[in-house]
Design a protein around this nucleic acid. Structure first.
Lengths: 227, 227
DNA sequence: TATAAAATGTGCTATAAATCACAAAGAGTA
DNA sequence: TACTCTTTGTGATTTATAGCACATTTTATA
């Protein structure tokens, strides 16, 4: 399915934004757009890296399934992001799985072209580096929070993470089931329900279906701070 | 303290290894070697990134001190590594602190020269990318383990991490106090003592002072797997 | 629209790990 | 060597969270 053109694409990544017309032509010839339906798995942990996958629109969950069948969701990825980029530069094996939280548009980019740009165009390499570094820092920040805080603090953190980093809004449809939310935060499904009920009873948030609205963000920040 | 020469340095990073003679000369003119005593803080979280710091010899701990005065050790870094490289490409502020677990040799490299190499030399950029990606994956792997396993599994993991990733030996002086080990694993100091005693009583490991020897690595792997 | 299946909420119980309290062992110093 | 200070080890207690059981709601499907 080839229809769009990288040159006029509105969803360019930071890195692709530094390419010139000629390079965008090359990219265009080595880039295939595709649609993914909600719930579909885009990429599976353990698979060889064959293409770079770029998320044009929609939300994706990055996760692993452990030996004991428990899942851990590492992060929610939003549009204009690469999926599993860090695996490209190491052992060429994907380390996490990716599935669509809603209908998506993605692009498959030829690995060789991507590497060629990195090696030939310093600006491009720099932007990719910035991207990987930023992602690493963000995820580690959440990791530190998770390992030092108790359940209320973690929920406050994740609600702020959704609001400030993912949806950029105090009100958002958070796309995940309770079980998935539990897997993201690292608590049991039952306690996920309990904490959300408690937060709603205290009028910190308002829940209607899958939609959450943050009512008292200052209190949430306080809970996050106190752990 | 300028005495060594980048050209003949035995401790070159992967990235610096791809530089040519001329570039090594440039590096040499913008690189200052320094010694750090055990216990000294090399870099503090919150500080602006002024130089790239390269760890030539010795072990370093990467950590954060949280608001509640609790510390979290993120990783142990061994020789031939960069400290806080991911912060260079983002907001230019260090996000973690680094202190010496033993006497070290480090190099301060001018940020501009480093960036220049990235932009002008694709191989170099690629190696830096590979480095940042690899580190990110390693740390995340440990993060996933920590959040899905209980205390015995975590200890098994950290012992295997020391043995396989850090010291490359079944017997090693692990440099950390019990409190630091607890901060690395994310458990209490008391339970750190208890688990180590238990493992020693079961003859899985042998402890003498700060030295640990792994006696039953297969059993340790089994404990790691079972969580 | 009815029915089955899945997801969610909630009280109760079990349990893993933190915390407390203090003893013992080491390290550093006069 | 004696004394202090720090680190480490271990039992008893507390606490946070997981797990269980089951009711309720929501979603999917015939």
């Amino acid at each position: 399915m080839k229809g769009s053109n990288c040159k006029i694409c509105e969803d360019k990544s930071c890195a692709v934004s530094v390419l010139n017309k000629n390079q965008l032509d090359i990219l265009n010839n080595n880039c295939v757009e595709s649609k993914v339906k909600k719930g579909e798995i885009i990429l599976r942990a353990g698979a060889m890296v064959s293409h770079i996958i770029y998320l044009r629109t929609g939300y994706v969950k990055e996760y692993v399934v452990c030996e004991n069948d428990k899942s851990k969701i590492l992060q929610i990825i939003k549009h204009h992001s690469y999926l599993g980029l860090h695996s490209l530069f190491g052992d060429k094996i994907n380390h996490y799985s990716y599935s669509a939280l809603e209908d998506l548009k993605i692009c498959y980019i030829d690995v060789n072209i991507f590497n060629q740009f990195i090696k030939e165009k310093g600006d491009f390499a720099y932007e990719v580096l910035a991207y990987v570094s930023r992602e690493s820092l963000n995820n580690f920040f959440r990791f530190i929070n998770q390992s030092n805080k108790r359940i209320n603090g973690r929920f406050a953190d994740v609600l702020l993470y959704f609001s400030e980093k993912i949806f950029n809004n105090l009100s958002f449809n958070f796309l995940l089931s309770r079980q998935e939310l539990a897997d993201l935060i690292g608590v049991s499904r039952e306690n996920t329900a309990r904490v959300l009920s408690k937060f709603e009873a205290d009028r910190i948030i308002n829940i209607s279906g899958k939609n959450i609205e943050i009512l008292k963000i200052d209190l949430l920040k306080k809970i996050s701070k106190n752990g």
